[in-house]
Design a protein around this nucleic acid. Sequence first.
DNA 1: AACATTGGCAACCGCAAGCGG
DNA 2: GCCGCTTGCGGTTGCCAATGT
Length: 322
Amino acid sequence: MGRIPCCEKDNVKRGQWTPEEDNKLSSYIAKHGTRNWRLIPKNAGLQRCGKSCRLRWTNYLRPDLKHGQFSDAEEQTIVKFHSIVGNRWSIIAAQLPGRTDNDVKNHWNTKLKKKLSSMGIDPVTHKPISHLIAEITTTLAPPQVAHLAEAALGCFKDEMLHLLTKKRIDFQLQQSNAAPGNTQSNYINSKQEEKDDTIEKIKLGLSRAIQEPDILPPNKLWDSHGPTFSNFTGTCTTFPASGFQYGPSSFSNEEDGSPWNQSMCTGSTCTAGDQQGQLQDKHDENGLESEGGKEIRNGSIIFNSDGVLWDLPSDDLMNPIV
DNA sequence: AACATTGGCAACCGCAAGCGG
DNA sequence: GCCGCTTGCGGTTGCCAATGT
């Protein structure tokens, strides 16, 4: 016996909601509440599926919803909690009054992921990409790294080139404009060479990392002062001495060259505080790494191998994560 | 100006959990 | 404990406006 469909698909309207439909639904819910979504469209005179009504109400019509731009504080919260709970959008949204899980999910997918990437942070693991590369180079055997690097270059070449060359291109554009005799077309013609050059430098950096494992000792992944990738990073903001962390100063004012707007670290010239290298890789049974590992939960303070990531006072969790 | 591509967002889909009989 | 139903959730799709070529 199959599952009963939530509505008669044939008689149900789909797609964008009209203002009239919104009014009908809102006024019906104002009078009768939201009990039994299956009956609501019928009783409200709507040719909609109950599920569709529920979504429309919870994601758009609810009077307590906040519409419009996400603030820096909200973005911080999303990133912060995403690093802890992952794609649990409802949990993250619960920390943001007036925002729905759909809002948060969309904002993450369209904006925040890109922001983090442009900062040199992997949006999945929330680790700096250079850190991931270092982990790869110290964990895998050199032949494996070479194959991986080759595959990654194939898959993400365009994205990497965009990230890595953007600032250099901007800089060169300014220079070419300023310098007499240096025309725009010369610049464009040299763009392909620039890309090829960048690919070669990426490969060189990876191969150096393979050949010189000592520059990235496993217990000091962050403190990688070696020449590994320094060749191809046009600009690289060094990490604060106290260690990398998401914090208010890192998230505000996109236009002023704040870390939100910069490639935080795409190479080994980035440095970190000494504390970051002191932690060992040890996993506990819960998947969280134990003392000396990447993620240590001490009360509400969450550490990782990069130092303190989040300092969450108990009241920071508006709704406790189960 | 026309067409193609991209970005942002709303809505849909299907699965799983929760709940009551 | 099982069954049927409702609700919640996360992934995906589709539409449309903005931007680029």
